[in-house]
């Protein structure tokens, strides 16, 4: 069952409820992010996985519930405190979100220049170390527009670890990657987690990749945690959600059809086509 770990989790989320445009995104979610582990949060598109990362980063405020980072309540933290806490979190955005008006080197140096008074020589050493860790030391003079998608994400990863955070949040790191850069990213996430003593949270729907490097997996659907456990436990589980998601079945608890009125009645009603044509 659950991995033995006596330490307090780094992040604890309890009874998280969040609504956007009247639609319930989360409805009482409980989950723990354990220190030093890679925790994957998976689920079908549109279940608010990215929203969850934004809530943990304090960019959004929940309607109800608590999110604690090292015991400190994020949902009630003031702006100044939130900015202090964020220095201890790195976030890797889906497309890297590099600043397009500066080159790779300056992008990685950016958080160091903003938050520290280190001399430029030391910043240079740190930047080169971070870039070496992601294998892109030689690309430091390139502009973001000259990078491939996978390279941009690796640069963003170097930037995310620039301030030596405690935790990194990965937002769909594998989407749209070719098999090689996917493999590179998978390996990087795992090795950085080990070598830097990080805690990683991985939001993804690439099952095989995420499962291969995660210590623990939460499966979200319909605003709730529908299954959790290690990868093996989930594959073995008799949860219909887990089975549908892990095996990629088109129909199941997540229906194939978007909610719609009765099919036959809808066909006979007509209307929209004529409106559009008019």
């Amino acid at each position: 069952m659950q991995q033995q770990d006596n330490d307090e989790p780094l992040v604890t989320i309890r009874d998280l409820t969040f609504r956007r445009d009247g639609r319930v995104i989360f409805d009482g979610v409980d989950l723990d992010i354990r220190r030093g582990r890679v925790t994957a949060i998976m689920g079908p598109s549109g279940t608010g996985k990215t929203t969850l990362l934004r809530l943990v980063g304090g960019q959004l405020r929940p309607e109800r519930g608590s999110i604690r980072f090292e015991g400190e309540e994020i949902t009630r933290a003031g702006r100044g405190r939130l900015y202090e806490l964020r220095k201890r979190m790195g976030m890797l955005f889906q497309n890297g979100a590099l600043l397009t008006d500066m080159n790779v080197y300056d992008n990685v140096a950016f958080p160091l220049r903003e938050h520290t008074d280190l001399p430029e020589a030391m910043i240079r050493d740190l930047v080169l170390m971070k870039l070496e860790a992601v294998g892109l030391r030689g690309a430091r003079r390139l502009m973001p527009s000259q990078l491939s998608g996978g390279m941009a994400r690796r640069v963003a990863l170097a930037r995310a670890i620039a301030l030596d955070p405690d935790m990194i949040l990965y937002d769909e790191p594998f989407t749209g990657q070719d098999p090689i850069s996917m493999g590179v990213l998978v390996r990087l996430i795992r090795t950085l987690n080990e070598s830097l003593g990080l805690t990683s949270v991985l939001v993804s729907h690439d099952i095989a990749e995420a499962a291969s490097i995660s210590d623990y997996i939460y499966l979200l659907a319909g605003g709730r945690v529908v299954a959790q456990g290690t990868a093996d436990e989930l594959y073995e589980s008799d949860s219909q959600w887990a089975q549908q998601f892990l095996k990629g079945l088109p129909d199941g608890p997540v229906p194939f059809h978007y909610p719609a009125p009765d099919y036959a009645g809808d066909l006979l009603a007509g209307g929209e086509g004529r409106e559009a044509a008019a």
Partner: peptide, 21 residues
Amino acid sequence: LMKATEQLSALEMMAVDPVRR
């Protein structure tokens, strides 16, 4: 476009206030 490509969000997550910066 900085907003659309999440650069402003990224600044916030790097604890840099996009309004000021």
